[in-house]
């Protein structure tokens, strides 16, 4: 694999990712739960922070011809 020639990813950084992923799982789960509870009681998420979209690249993004060769 070519990337082994390239740079040192840090052994500690590779090993620790298992712990970080576990924490991330809990964080995401609880955020999700809070969101559900909030919407259950009618608190809508604030829509102000719409400067950035979601992580997923949607089909719409890809079909978006605006970005190709202009």
């Amino acid at each position: 694999m070519i990337h082994f020639l390239y740079f040192d990813p840090g052994l500690g950084a590779m090993v620790v990712q298992a712990v970080i992923a576990a924490v991330a799982g809990v964080v995401l789960f609880s955020k999700n739960l809070m969101f559900k509870i909030k919407s259950l009681f009618g608190f809508s998420q604030d829509k102000n922070e719409e400067l950035f979209d979601d992580i997923d690249v949607t089909d719409k993004d890809i079909e978006n011809t605006e970005n190709s060769d202009r």
């Binding site: 840090g10 052994l11 500690g12 090993v15 970080i20 991330a24 964080v27």
Partner: peptide, 18 residues
């Protein structure tokens, strides 16, 4: 927990394994 794991713990592991 989020900042601890992504920064402090990372730093500790990097130190330990260096």
């Amino acid at each position: 927990p989020f900042l601890y794991s992504n920064i402090h713990l990372l730093s500790k592991y990097e130190d330990k394994h260096s």
